[in-house]
């Protein structure tokens, strides 16, 4: 019976996240528009975009292989799997025991590798250079993410996200200096991995600077819809991993429907404020030159390593 309730929570979490991810992107665009004195297209615009893309014709480049058509599904699927194992609205879900933080980073890496391969598959210059840039930057961002996650794992003495969230809900990790560093490192990784402004600007197609957009340039129709949805899921995922590590209050521990609904509401409230902060960062900072981006990423790595080191130095 308990397992049945667990699976119900699991399904609820996945459906909730998949449904809410475009809303998050819409809210981000709205806040950015407000901050920049523009009229926004409305908070529901990403849904309309997805709807439109799903009904458009899907074109496939002539010389591309199966990889090109296959990878949007892999990317979307990897994100859904990641959503299933992160404690977003409920802790201790049935699938959560299937993977720890390292496997989570691995899942995200699988999605990235398929995106990069698919971008190079078409043989166009844009896709290829987007893929190279993506690998250049993520090679620096991934260790930073791992360092941030390991800091939390060291404090919880476990790499299981369930255990980390469980302990940090009791012990309040957040005022620990090493966690402060891990949080800063995580913030850097969030900006780098989600193609946010100091690193990449997903709103433009300027060939000198684009990274993410260069990789999805050849896609259209439902493939593009899936890729965009996967990108929105990724942002949602990173933010909620951040919440799970650093602001774990309100993640439901007891299996009851009311606590699930309350937890979902709390996640939305946290996301509301996190998006405002993100929009402020994106408005206040200028896009960095591409060759300065590795510096940005290595600063994130630096914070992660300092977090790890200060765990050993300043004790727990």
């Amino acid at each position: 019976m308990t397992s049945l309730i667990g699976w119900r929570d699991q399904c609820f979490q996945i459906l909730f996240v998949v449904a809410a991810a475009p809303l998050l992107a819409g809210w981000l665009q709205t806040v950015r528009a407000l901050l920049q004195n523009r009229r926004s297209a409305g908070i529901l615009q990403p849904y309309r975009d997805l709807f439109r893309l799903f009904h458009k014709e899907t074109l496939i480049p002539e010389q591309s292989s199966w990889l090109f058509q296959f990878s949007p599904y892999v990317m979307f699927g990897a994100k859904i799997m990641a959503v299933a194992i992160v404690p977003i609205i409920a802790n201790g879900l049935p699938l959560a025991s299937a993977a720890d933080v390292i496997a989570l980073v691995g899942l995200l890496a699988v999605a990235r590798i398929f995106q990069v391969l698919a971008a190079m598959d078409t043989g166009t210059a844009f896709g290829s250079y987007g893929a190279h840039r993506e690998m250049l930057i993520s090679a620096l961002a991934e260790p930073a993410l791992l360092a941030a996650l390991f800091t939390a794992s060291l404090l919880a003495r476990s790499t299981s996200l369930v255990q980390i969230v469980h302990l940090s809900q009791i012990q309040l990790f957040s005022i620990h200096p090493s966690m402060v560093f891990a949080a800063i490192a995580f913030g850097f990784v969030l900006l780098v991995e989600n193609a946010r402004i100091p690193v990449d600007n997903p709103a433009t197609h300027l060939e000198l600077t684009m990274i993410h957009e260069a990789m999805v340039l050849e896609y259209s129709g439902r493939h593009l819809a899936l890729l965009e949805w996967a990108a929105q899921l990724k942002l949602f995922l990173y933010m909620t991993i951040g919440f799970a590590l650093f602001l774990p209050w309100g993640i439901a521990a007891k299996p009851s429907l009311t606590s699930l609904v309350i937890a979902a509401g709390l996640v939305l409230v946290k996301l509301f404020f996190a998006v405002v902060v993100l929009a402020l960062i994106e408005t206040l900072l200028a896009k960095k030159r591409l060759f300065r981006v590795p510096e940005f990423a290595i600063t994130g790595f630096l914070f992660g390593v300092i977090g790890l080191l200060s765990h050993f130095m300043l004790g727990s």
Binding site: I175, H176, P177, V180, F181, I184, T299, I306, S310
Partner: peptide, 20 residues
């Protein structure tokens, strides 16, 4: 003492910022 620790850590961050 936790606040002192965070200040110490902040000191280190500032040193790295100076470096960069």
């Amino acid at each position: 003492s936790p606040v002192l620790r965070i200040l110490a850590a902040w000191m280190l961050v500032l040193s790295f910022a100076l470096l960069a």
